[in-house]
C-alpha cells in the first residue's frame, strides 16, 4: 500500500508539471513521452503497430482468468467463489503489468520480458500488493470528482515510474 501511495504521489506530481503528458494517445507516443520525462533522456521510438492488439490480448486474458471462478461458482453452487474473480483478474494483470513500458522500450518479446520484470519486481504477490491499490486509487480518486481520465493517467504514470525504478535498480536486462 505504501509503495502504491508513493508511486501515485510521484505520478501526480509529474503529471502536474508536465502538461504534455496529459494528452493520452492510443499508440505508444504517450508511453515514449512518459519514459523520456521519467528518464530525462530521449527514448528511441519503436514500432507502434501492435499496441492495441497487445492491450486487447492482455485484458482478454485477465477477463478469462476472472471468468473461471464465476463459472465454477455457478457449477458448484459455491457462491463465495465469485469473490475470487477480482483476485484472478489481478493475478494475471500482475504478470503483464509492465507490458506497455517494455514494448515502448523496444522489446521484441514483450510478454516474456514483461513477465520477467514482474519477477524482478518481487513476484506475483508483491506486484499485486502494489497494482491493486494503484487501481483502487485510480477508481476512488476518479469517482471522487477528480476526473476519471486524470486519475487514469496518474495510474498509468505510476506504472511507468515503477517500471523505471525496477529497471534502474535491477539492470535493464531484467
Amino acid at each position: 500500500m505504501d509503495d502504491a501511495r508513493a508511486l501515485f504521489a510521484e505520478a501526480e506530481e509529474l503529471l502536474a508539471h508536465e502538461p504534455v503528458l496529459r494528452a493520452l494517445s492510443v499508440d505508444l507516443a504517450w508511453m515514449h513521452a512518459a519514459l523520456a520525462h521519467v528518464r530525462g533522456a530521449p527514448v528511441a521510438r519503436t514500432s507502434t503497430g501492435r499496441i492495441v492488439q497487445l492491450i486487447v490480448e492482455k485484458y482478454a486474458l485477465c477477463a478469462l482468468a476472472a471468468f473461471a471462478p464465476v463459472v465454477l461458482a455457478f457449477a458448484l453452487r459455491a457462491w463465495w467463489l465469485v469473490f475470487a474473480a477480482p483476485v484472478a483478474f489481478y493475478a494475471v494483470e500482475a504478470q503483464f503489468v509492465f507490458l506497455l513500458p517494455v514494448v515502448a522500450d523496444g522489446s521484441t518479446r514483450p510478454w516474456r520480458d514483461a513477465h520477467l520484470r514482474t519477477r524482478t519486481a518481487g513476484g506475483t504477490l508483491r506486484v499485486m500488493a502494489t497494482v491493486v491499490p494503484i487501481a483502487l486509487f485510480m477508481l476512488v480518486e476518479g469517482l471522487a470528482g477528480r476526473g476519471l481520465v486524470r486519475s487514469w493517467l496518474v495510474g498509468c504514470l505510476a506504472i511507468v515510474l515503477w517500471h523505471e525504478r525496477v529497471r534502474v535498480e535491477h539492470g535493464s536486462a531484467a
Binding site: D2, D3, A6, A9, E10, E12, E13
Partner: peptide, 9 residues
C-alpha cells in the same frame, strides 16, 4: 510538497 507519500521520491 502536498502529498506526504512523495517523501519516498
Amino acid at each position: 510538497a502536498h502529498r506526504p507519500a512523495i517523501v519516498a521520491a
